[in-house]
Design a protein around this nucleic acid. Structure first.
Lengths: 352, 352
DNA sequence: AACCGCGACTGAAACGGTTCGGTCCCGCGC
DNA sequence: GCGCGGGACCGAACCGTTTCAGTCGCGGTT
């Protein structure tokens, strides 16, 4: 296999020194325009393109950022956040010649090891941290490793890192108030695992909104962002003495599972029970009833977070700062309606 | 910021030459065991870890493989293949110190450009090609670029590349025969876009199975792997003079859209129309009726394809070879049943 | 005793760029 | 006429590894 053409070849062909060729091709001052153009032309003719390896070695840069997805493969497959987020990240970094290295890790322990490798090999110049947990180990870890990092988390979280704060609270407040305005007084919540800061944030928003509206505390069910957990929650709700008339779900997938479970038992949504989701995933638009939910903008999140990371990489000593993203809009579907007077008909509930 | 400890620091601290240190740490022969252990110990004390940049420069390797996802962000979010596939890829490459660089591209043109960059910058040592199209440009492109590549495609495709052939045909044959065994004689198909080889393969399998069973050709509707397309197909079916009694969908998402659309119009699945999907996604287990489908193993596909790519990278001159993956199992759900005698009740069909 | 082979270790080149100090030459001001 | 500043270009060092041609010393062979 023929040796790849290097900058030395270009320099020789142009009759200039290696360093002049470099300067010319990089657009640095110190070369006459005529010569620069000449060198450029030759580089093009020779199909020269600098290799990242050498450039990175000299510049002490990897021109890559890392992202470790701490989700099981199955969850990733249905995770609506993921794809758009990545697309957004790439939008932000492509222009800077950066690229994204993606790792999947089923457990936080293995993830920690991956971060250590990223840092040890200098494989990436920085990392993005998402799905922040309460007291997340990764924050201490990236500091120990000296790995530039940007965290994606609600504004309630305080950490010595630059943060892109994407708040889910306004959206939850909005859907909850929407249900209250419809006349619901018994509004339950299927929460995500409380180890995640965004689960906590959404739960708090729901609870505070009820309190602020003078309503009694609603029932709280454990979910985990999956359809399966919504399905389980449906069973629990059907088994309740006094089921809620409305349910705020931690996300759309959970809501879909809930709706399917309720419908299978003969419960009408929204006639008997109103359901709202969170995320605004495409799929929810084609199910029946169309889900009332809050649209989020994962692509924007990815773009903004990655842009922050690039800034941080350029100035690693910089004091942590925070960027706040506006809340997404409420998407009116057909899964909410005024509460029915009285309890669920007994006949229906026994179907299951 | 203190300079990072390099192998020179280790060598100096151990009182040996740079090259001895390198040899010792890489486990190469030519160093006494005592000295090797000593050097190892010192390296560990100094928290030395070699940087990929320098190693890559010397070894002329990027220690990374590339994957360009030619899907729009929205589709990616719901694509069940994606997450598990990536997890599988990583399983295969992590042991070799490789990593995956992920790029997203909305269009084939931009994708081509990304491949060119991969090759030009020598950012990756090889790429994985999935979602192969008929007469896919990428095949010529990677050859032109001299970029090692492994394609993931049905065995029907012939290309001068190593291929991981994952056939969807046996699965489609199986579900189609299942429907025929139930007594269906009018079995339609919602196909994917025919530019994709796997759409073609699945359609052919469906058509051939009908022919082999002595059944007339079934209706063929255009879909595109999305829930939306299944939803659209539902409308088309409802508008037909003589709707099929069963529908084979190109994938689960499409089937989900179809089922939802039919149900919304008052059509019973499987009572009035049976529906089968393809993929075996998690979500389909929690909808009602549970979807009868064919499970695929994207994680295995990823693992196998990546393993092939590593082999190819180690021996780029190697003649193209093919690895065949077994078909996945049929997953019995509740979305299929014997056909109802007679046409759909007119009253129902007018609901929509 | 001279020679050979071999294991252990060293020095330097190579990988392919960037960057910086320095030289040369030109035009300018005094 | 001379000194000076600055633009254009060159040479060499440097980034942090791997690798390979040698050197050295030692034990065993003839």
């Amino acid at each position: 296999m023929a040796r790849r053409t290097t900058i030395v070849d270009v320099a020789r062909a142009a009759g200039v020194s290696l360093s002049t060729a470099s300067v010319a091709l990089n657009g640095l001052p110190g070369v006459s325009e005529a010569k620069r153009e000449h060198i450029r032309q030759i580089a093009q003719d020779l199909k020269y393109s600098p290799t990242l390896r050498a450039r990175g070695l000299a510049a002490k840069r990897a021109f890559a950022i890392g992202f470790v997805v701490e989700r099981s493969p199955e969850v990733m497959g249905s995770d609506p956040f993921f794809g758009a987020f990545i697309a957004g990240v790439q939008e932000a970094i492509a222009g800077a010649g950066y690229v994204m290295v993606l790792q999947v890790s089923p457990s936080p322990e293995q993830a920690a090891w991956l971060y250590r490798e990223f840092a040890g090999e200098r494989r990436v110049d920085g990392v993005l941290l998402d799905q922040l947990r309460v007291d997340d180990d990764r924050i201490g870890l990236v500091q120990e490793l000296g790995l530039p990092a940007v965290a994606i988390a609600p504004p309630t979280v305080a950490a010595p890192l630059p943060m892109l704060s994407q708040s889910g609270a306004p959206g939850i407040v909005e859907v909850t108030e929407h249900l209250m305005a419809l006349g619901h007084r018994d509004i339950a919540h299927i929460r995500g695992k409380l180890e995640y800061v965004h689960s906590v944030e959404r739960r708090t928003a729901w609870r505070d909104t009820l309190a602020k509206g003078g309503l009694p505390a609603g029932a709280e069910l454990q979910g985990d962002f999956t359809v399966a957990s919504g399905s389980r929650a449906a069973e629990e709700i059907l088994a309740m003495d006094r089921p809620p008339t409305a349910v705020v779900c931690v996300n759309d997938l959970c809501a879909i599972g809930l709706v399917a479970g309720l419908q299978a038992a003969g419960v009408d949504v929204p006639g008997d029970i109103s359901v709202v989701g969170f995320d605004g995933i495409e799929l929810a638009n084609y199910l029946h009833p169309r889900l009332t939910t809050v649209r989020t903008a994962p692509q924007t999140v990815g773009r903004a977070a990655a842009a922050m990371l690039l800034e941080l990489i350029d100035d690693p000593g910089r004091e942590p700062w925070t960027v706040q993203l506006g809340p997404g809009p409420l998407v009116m579907g057909e899964s909410t309606a005024p509460p029915r007077a009285g309890a669920l008909p007994a006949v229906r509930r026994s179907v299951s």
